[in-house]
């Protein structure tokens, strides 16, 4: 039995200790916003926050985050009002959309650590998130925009 607090709600999961957090979130908790893309931390589609820090859920055994607080895309904000989500909407970032939960979670982690990121900061923090549709240019612009929105 593993206890996790997901998006503010503490739950018990009867799953094997070494089951990746990703599949606990998706197939057991039913939170499908966090995506499976590669299974080896190559694509970033599974990015969540654990105790506020970004984590690739596909390579993290659930037992390693037992008792911790997990935030998924569904819990980033109650109403898509997080500055990153607002910027994503404003700049029409998405295409197929499959990678975007991970992109948004990574961007949110970056802005938390670095409220006014440079292009180099964006390269360093977001190069772990693949987008096969090639939305990188708008992602970059939207991260800058989110930084402005966050300052109000």
């Amino acid at each position: 039995m593993v206890s996790l607090t997901i998006n503010g709600k503490t739950q018990q999961f009867d799953v094997p200790d070494d089951m990746p957090l990703l599949w606990v979130l998706r197939d057991v908790a039913g939170l499908t916003g966090t995506k499976f893309g590669c299974g080896m931390a190559q694509c970033g589609a599974c990015t969540v926050h654990v105790d506020g820090a970004p984590l690739r859920a596909c390579v993290m055994p659930v037992a390693a985050v037992a008792g911790k607080s997990v935030t998924t895309i569904e819990g980033l904000s109650p109403d898509a009002s997080h500055p990153v989500q607002r910027a994503w909407a404003e700049l029409d970032v998405v295409q197929c959309g499959y990678c975007q939960s991970g992109q948004i979670m990574s961007a949110a982690a970056l802005l938390k650590a670095k409220p006014t990121p440079t292009d180099a900061d964006i390269d360093a923090a977001l190069s772990g998130n693949l987008c096969r549709c090639g939305t990188y240019q708008r992602i970059r612009a939207a991260v800058h925009r989110a930084a402005e929105l966050a300052k109000g």
Partner: peptide
């Protein structure tokens, strides 16, 4: 900042079932 090592590298090697490249 925003992509700490711990994003991908945990406290221990992942189980073998995660594959050789995790």
């Amino acid at each position: 900042e925003g992509l700490p090592c711990s994003t991908c590298h945990g406290e221990a090697n992942p189980p073998a079932s995660y594959g050789p490249h995790a």
